[in-house]
Write a protein that binds this DNA or RNA. Sequence first.
DNA 1: CAGACTTTGGAAAACGCTTTCCGGGAGGTT
DNA 2: AACCTCCCGGAAAGCGTTTTCCAAAGTCTG
Lengths: 330, 330
Amino acid sequence: MVTLEDVARHAGVSLATASRVLNGSTRQVGASLRVKVELAAAQLGYRTNVAAQTLARGASNVIGLVVHDLTDPYFAAIADGAMRVAENQGLMVMIGTTHRDPQREIAYVSTLNAQRVRAVLLVGSRVADEQLTRRLREELDRYRETGGRVACVGQDLLGVDTVVPDNRLGAATLARALAGLGHRSFAVLAGPDRLIAPMDRVAGFAGALEELGLPAPLVLHSSFDREGGYAAATQVSGVTCVFAVTDVMAVGALAAFRDRGIRVPEDVSVAGFDDISTLRDLVPSLSTVRLPLAEMGARALEMALAPDEGTGAQVVTGEVILRESTRALG
Amino acid sequence: MVTLEDVARHAGVSLATASRVLNGSTRQVGASLRVKVELAAAQLGYRTNVAAQTLARGASNVIGLVVHDLTDPYFAAIADGAMRVAENQGLMVMIGTTHRDPQREIAYVSTLNAQRVRAVLLVGSRVADEQLTRRLREELDRYRETGGRVACVGQDLLGVDTVVPDNRLGAATLARALAGLGHRSFAVLAGPDRLIAPMDRVAGFAGALEELGLPAPLVLHSSFDREGGYAAATQVSGVTCVFAVTDVMAVGALAAFRDRGIRVPEDVSVAGFDDISTLRDLVPSLSTVRLPLAEMGARALEMALAPDEGTGAQVVTGEVILRESTRALG
DNA sequence: CAGACTTTGGAAAACGCTTTCCGGGAGGTT
DNA sequence: AACCTCCCGGAAAGCGTTTTCCAAAGTCTG
């Protein structure tokens, strides 16, 4: 293992000079010595030991990213956005996937704290559980006390900078658009009842229907993935329009209706949420609420990295996009 | 920042004892002291400084993962498989995305080397470029000289443990199956001509057709993504069956045919490769060659982490799955 | 009960960098 | 020519752990 000391000796300079040449410092080094050091480093195949550097500097070049599930295109898109800004800043990204287990989220914050990462990004819906939220906050506070920066994509419950998709408004706007198409009877594939994002979407949707004087929708709970959408759709009947709280669930619903011989949109309209790009080529193409996922990830990391803490919450609004999976009635 | 020394002092023991209690050691510590240390650590909110630990131990608990594009479900699935085994082993994962730039892949290996990660996983097709491959090998060799472990998911060109999908055989088997349906005239949406995986798939497909005494397929090059599939499909005519070298490209092709008013599978059959799970609910459902992506990622990391190096190449064969996007002729 | 092990705790030397001081020489000003 | 600055190179003190020795105290044997 070639160390900086080897390089310094080989170049006939001091450790300090070698360090200044190779690992960016404010101090200048004369041209002749600089060349000598660079040559020696190249010849010996020197590679900085980042652990030592981090220890000496007291700051690392890594950021932590905690997501629920990387194979879910929603998280992949957000992660990608965040990773692009990380790359621009010369930061490496450490990723943890919780597989939707809030305990694991807490554990990852602790681990990332131990790694002394520069910032932690928590991506994904908060859970409606006082105690878990409190434990997570404690862990985050501990991290922040020692200079760690945190941002979140989700709900503003953690007392950290947060990019908040306006789930209620998006769902409400969608509901009004669907009502505008003439729909009067709705079902909502609501996902699990402990995650806040889907709950907000359900509430926004139902609230708008109520404002319009329409009957309350049939609310069906299930898991938050394609299978959940499929299972919930199996129980749908007697409505003209179905709102799945995510595109991924909508895909499951579409499959269920197909298997049941129910045509979309002729027999029932279906709408999703998120506008996952991988799913844009579905047939029928999915009506949905578009969220700028990559940008959300990017903005969150920018907040976390910003010199001044606590810009608070940035709300991102979704844009309703009606495609072929919903049709006008009458 | 609470250090181990603070904990030791607070507990009234030596640094050595505190270290042994808190960060797993072979040495035993008496029950009474052990409790004191644990208590002190909890009270002070001690969090191991991993950088210091890595430096002292000379080995980190991180592995590096280099993929082309996380938003491509192909890579997401492989990464997920690898991350599951990492998690089981208590390892953190550092991810780099190259966005298909081979230079960046080399740069990431160098960076991960500097991080002194335990192992590096290179995921994705190798490029047909002698010089780039050589430079990557050199960088890998430098990393391996100092104890770094490397594995690859792709082609066995790097002199490291590799999980190799048998692209030729899979494509050939697919070709035979399609010929078995009565197809005689084919087009291949071949992707870029510098990536080896798509080239192998094209070669396997064309080779099988030749063996069967069928005319050579029309080969159309394009980019390796959905847009490439769309663009290439625009130029297809006069064939009964189209093979897109990835499912993602097949999706683009499906969209192009739809836009052109060409029905699938009535007017033309379409097959893909990979069997991306997010795409299983497409209509018409996609005939394809299934690759066990998550398992490939997991196996690769297991190889990289195995105590004995150089088990060489593990070939993974794909399974042809005929669904609705291809139909029998006549 | 002496001698030989085995445990268990502590002191201190790494691990490979960064950065603060110091000092010496070059250049500029009176 | 004397004095002040500025600039650049080096010595050395950390950064927070792990781990190697030592030493002291048990624990066995015969």
